[in-house]
Structures are given as structure tokens and as C-alpha cells.
């Protein structure tokens, strides 16, 4: 790692003020993503601002729904009783991610800001439009078997946020509370937070320089209570998803009243599928409906040479998730 200065702050406005003055500074919470990126020379920072003392804590039911402080740790949220019982997809996405050690360290805010595992991004010997804008994308014709098939561009086919939590959160209409350097807060739906690569894959979110994630809020809903996260990977545990599905259904008398669907591992960003939801809503909860929804979700897929298998894999993952969910009473 390059040498850097460190300071811990007690107030959000002090943290954001430092980043406003020093464009090379970064926030640090759990550190699991940031120090990894710094050790591999993908990121260099002049100073790290430790935000762990900021009051962005708490896991509670509010009138807006479930509110999770951005500094809560993955393990604490994943095993929280309220989350387990009322928002199971969120709990499952957290407990199927990373390892127990990393989950004890990593914050919710940092999890949502983790960066792609694309091998070309993570090896500074290669060009990468995300890392060095305009340098090229060797993944297009290279080793792309783990990379995205939805929302990709000729500039980038990375799964920009490869994590699991964001998939569950975009499915369940999560809203982020952000705070900028002037102390002003704004609320951004997670579906609008992530940017598709287009010609600017280095721009990954709408977060302004120095802006902090304060909290995540998830609306209470029948389809949140009956939700699940299914993750398919090459080994049973401790691996990123090849494909995953976060689904939530409100089924009454065999008819689907409301549905939420998001896919992981296949999108340039965590992939909410309104197309699949449209087919599910009002339809009978049958295999034919699930298959039609899966086909709609993958309709716009643009696989490259080695990741065509993900089209079928993602469809089957979604169908199985919908089956498993409706089998639960």
C-alpha cells in the first residue's frame, strides 16, 4: 500500500469536509474492500478518514420500514431477528456472502460500494476502462466467463457490484439516505443509485465526491416478508455468485398479488427486472408463469463468447427461487 495519513472523526460534517478538501482521501469503515483495493494498487489514497464513530447505527422498524444504519456490520444485520423474520431475502443475501470473518468487519455502506471482481480490473497490468478511462476492455474478447450479460456495453462487461446484499435491496425497493459535505441529506432509491457502464464505466454510482451513505431503508410489504435469496456458485460457500435471484411474492389463493425480482451475477449492476414482475403480477403461481417471467428477465441478454451459459443459468435460478418461495407456507 502507498503511504497515507489516517484520522478518525466524530462527526459526519468533519468527515465530508476532509474529502472536500482532499480529493485523494477516502472514508474507511470495515476496510475489507478498501484495503484490498489499495494493496493491489487499484486505488491509492492520500489519507483514510475513519468513520466508525459516526452515529450511523441501528437496525429498527420505522414508519418508513426497516432502517439499517450504514455502519452496521453484515453479520449483525444478517442475524438480526427483525431482518430474519420480516425481510428474509436481506438476511439470506448477507449470510451467503463472503466469510464469517469478513461479515464481522464489513459495513453495510461499504458492502454497497464494493467494486467488481473482473480479473482485468483487478490486475493493473491490463487496460481497463473502469480503472483507466479510455484504455480499453480486454474482457470483451477475453476471459469473460464470470462477467455480466445484462446492461453491458462495448466499454465494460463487469459485474460492477458483485455482492449479494444489493441484489436483495434493489428487489425490495430499498432507499439510501446520503449526506453531502454541506450536511444536506437526500434520499436515492437503490435502483437509481447504480449507473450502467455505457461509455463511462468508471462512474459507478450517483454518489458525489465526499458524500456518505447514512442508512438504508426498506419498505415493509407482504412481498418483503415472503422473500428469499438464491445464490448459485461454483463451490458451496465463500464465492461470488455466478447467478443469483432475490424474489419476493405476495400470493393469495394461488394468484400472485405483487412480485419483486432482482438478479445478481448477470447484470452490469444489481439487476431489478420489472419485466419479470409484470408477468408475475396477477398471474397464477405456476411453473408456466415462472418460466415466462424468467424469459422476460433475460430477454435483453448480450452474452459474450464464454458467458452464454449464464442466460440459461439465470433463468433456472429465478424459476427455482420462485418455486422454493411458493413452496414455503
Amino acid at each position: 500500500m502507498n503511504n497515507f495519513a489516517y484520522q478518525q472523526v466524530g462527526k459526519a460534517k468533519d468527515a465530508t469536509a476532509i474529502l472536500r478538501e482532499d480529493k485523494q482521501a477516502a472514508f474507511i469503515a470495515g476496510g475489507t474492500t478498501l484495503l484490498d483495493l489499495m494493496k493491489t494498487n487499484i486505488e491509492q489514497h492520500s489519507q483514510l478518514v475513519d468513520i466508525n464513530l459516526l452515529p450511523f447505527k441501528g437496525i429498527e422498524q420505522t414508519s418508513d420500514g426497516l432502517r439499517i444504519g450504514a455502519l452496521e456490520r453484515m453479520s449483525d444485520v444478517g442475524e438480526n431477528r427483525l431482518v430474519l423474520e420480516q425481510y428474509p431475502a436481506i438476511s439470506e443475501s448477507l449470510l451467503l456472502a463472503a466469510s464469517p470473518q469478513l461479515r464481522n468487519m464489513a459495513s453495510i455502506g461499504g458492502n454497497l460500494l464494493q467494486r467488481t471482481r473482473c480479473g482485468y480490473f483487478r490486475d493493473v497490468a491490463f487496460p481497463c476502462n473502469k480503472r483507466e478511462p479510455g484504455s480499453g476492455c480486454p474482457a470483451q474478447k477475453g476471459d469473460n466467463r464470470n462477467l455480466a450479460i445484462l446492461g453491458v456495453s462495448d466499454s465494460c462487461i463487469a459485474n460492477s457490484n458483485p455482492g449479494d446484499l444489493a441484489v436483495a435491496l434493489v428487489a425490495l425497493d430499498a432507499v439510501l439516505t446520503l449526506e453531502n459535505a454541506k450536511g444536506k441529506q437526500r434520499r436515492v432509491p437503490l435502483t437509481n443509485f447504480y449507473l450502467l457502464p455505457g461509455n463511462t464505466p468508471h462512474k459507478e454510482t450517483v454518489l458525489e465526491p465526499g458524500e456518505l451513505i447514512v442508512a438504508v431503508t426498506v419498505p415493509t410489504a407482504a412481498h418483503a416478508r415472503r422473500s428469499m435469496y438464491l445464490k448459485v456458485r461454483e463451490r458451496t460457500s465463500y464465492a461470488y455468485a455466478l447467478a443469483s435471484a432475490a424474489v419476493g411474492l405476495d400470493v393469495q389463493g394461488g394468484q400472485i398479488r405483487s412480485a419483486r425480482v432482482a438478479l445478481g451475477g448477470v447484470g452490469a449492476q444489481p439487476w431489478r427486472s420489472l419485466e419479470a414482475e409484470k408477468i408475475l403480477t396477477g398471474a397464477p403461481a405456476t411453473e408456466a408463469t415462472f418460466r415466462a417471467a424468467a424469459a422476460a428477465a433475460l430477454q435483453g441478454a448480450q452474452p459474450r463468447e464464454h458467458n452464454g451459459y449464464k442466460v440459461e443459468l439465470a433463468k433456472n435460478t429465478l424459476v427455482r427461487a420462485l418455486f422454493d418461495l411458493t413452496a414455503k407456507v
Partner: peptide, 27 residues
Amino acid sequence: CDLGQCGACTVLVDGRRINSCLTLAVM
């Protein structure tokens, strides 16, 4: 691995297991 992937550096901090390679001593 020094990148939080292998667990060889696992220690307990305030009773919780963590990867000591992905946290700073100063913290």
C-alpha cells in the same frame, strides 16, 4: 493471501473473529 481470502490471519477482536490482514493496526 494478505487479501482476506484465506483466513490464515484470523484473530479475535473484542471476541469477534476478523481477518487481521484487512484492518489497520491504528484502527
